[in-house]
Design a protein around this nucleic acid. Structure first.
Lengths: 224, 224
DNA sequence: GTCTGTGAAGGTATTCACAGCC
DNA sequence: GGCTGTGAATACCTTCACAGAC
């Protein structure tokens, strides 16, 4: 914590997209009790080249020690700080079907920095029931406090997605993660990221087809 | 169908990543009975610039008509063909918890070109039970035929993911979509794409924090 | 006149390779 | 000696602007 530095470099988009992977690896290693890691080892784990990793990290500042490597906890703090995880973000999941339930109980979201604050569904049969120890509320209950950072997750069928997006925007949400297979139209000051599962399959199919599997030596996961 | 052309241009990675979005919009419009569309309108719907869209499409070949636009059905066929969706791909979903069930019943995957052929779980309590009209089988049942293209989806907890990946590789799967929040290690001829929900939230948090919301005029969804 | 297809220009990201510091 | 941080070189992607086809 306490990144009271100047923090004045523009972090490139491509770098931002990779920071979560680095953070995950760092947290895993920290949990294992490891204290230091080299750019080579961290890059290997994250599935990128070590040069790319060092370039990425140097955009946040100079937190490594030459000849030694990076202190895992320190680096994890700085990466988390750069991502804006010092403040707490509230998450509203809209659509409490299988997918919404899965996202709620799934370990990936209730992670440091994010608080699943609202589970929303308008079906009166599920409102009031429990999912993972949280109560499902109707849309009207989504009333962020002034200044509260809210991320809305759309887990409804495609047919309802645009309408949900509109209501999220009206409620003041400026960041949306869309799991429905539709393109959303929102005002320019609202950002949308879409997770398109069919698209992911199609991209895999393309690559296997063209056996464009020329990849890093021992291939690791890659994002985007 | 019948893309017996030469089809000899290298399609850039960035383009491949966008083709699924175009295909989705084209299919939506085709379902609405629309016959033609301009690069401007298609780009608007897909959330990209029209120049980018035309460059992307021209990498597949020259399927538009100057002064007129694109024939929606023809173009959709060619995009699908480029993505390798002429042949049928088999999908195996491993892990039949909430997430696996959601992915199975979710409309996004049982789409043209993909056949959810195996629902896999090793918990004897769920093996034999039904999800969306399909029976859950144990891992041993995953026996692809020679030449069959299989995509494995990992929907297990993070702790089991690497082990599942290993077993998929042994079974001959060369394309994996990983929903577990872990980095997987696989041989170089196996490709992995990871859907990292925590990562998506973190990227949204970063962008809202830095209000890097300078975007296209009427912003649409953007992938990656 | 309209709208696609595409060279050329401009911008971003990645890789290389080594200087700088422990 | 070892490993980070970074300019320089390269590769890739996007935007511009217009020639070419209808």
């Amino acid at each position: 914590m306490s990144t009271e530095h100047v923090e004045r470099r523009e972090i490139p988009d491509a770098t931002v997209n990779r920071l979560p992977v680095y953070l995950r690896v760092l947290n895993e290693r920290a949990a294992m009790g490891q204290e230091r890691i080299s750019s080579e080892a961290l890059a290997e784990q994250a599935g990128v080249s070590s040069a790319k990793l060092r370039k990425d990290l140097s955009a946040l500042g100079s937190y490594g020690v030459r000849g030694v490597g990076y202190d895992i906890v320190t680096l994890a703090d700085h990466v988390a700080g750069a991502l804006g995880l010092e403040r707490e973000w509230s998450v509203a999941i809209v659509g409490m079907g299988n997918l919404g339930r899965a996202l709620t109980t799934y370990g990936g979201i209730g992670v440091k920095g994010f608080d699943i604050k609202w589970l929303i569904d308008d079906d009166p049969r599920v409102v009031g029931t429990d999912v993972g120890g949280r109560v499902i509320v109707p849309f009207e209950a989504l009333r962020p406090e002034p200044g509260e950072g809210v991320i809305g997750i759309i887990a409804t069928p495609a047919t309802a997605a645009q309408q949900v997006a509109d209501r999220l925007v009206v409620a003041g949400v400026r960041s949306i993660l869309n799991f429905a297979p539709t393109v959303l139209t929102v005002p320019a000051d609202v950002q949308v990221r879409g997770v398109d599962m069919a698209g992911e399959l199609q991209i895999l199919a393309f690559r296997e087809q063209h056996s464009r599997l020329a990849r890093s030596r021992t291939t690791k996961e890659l994002l985007a």
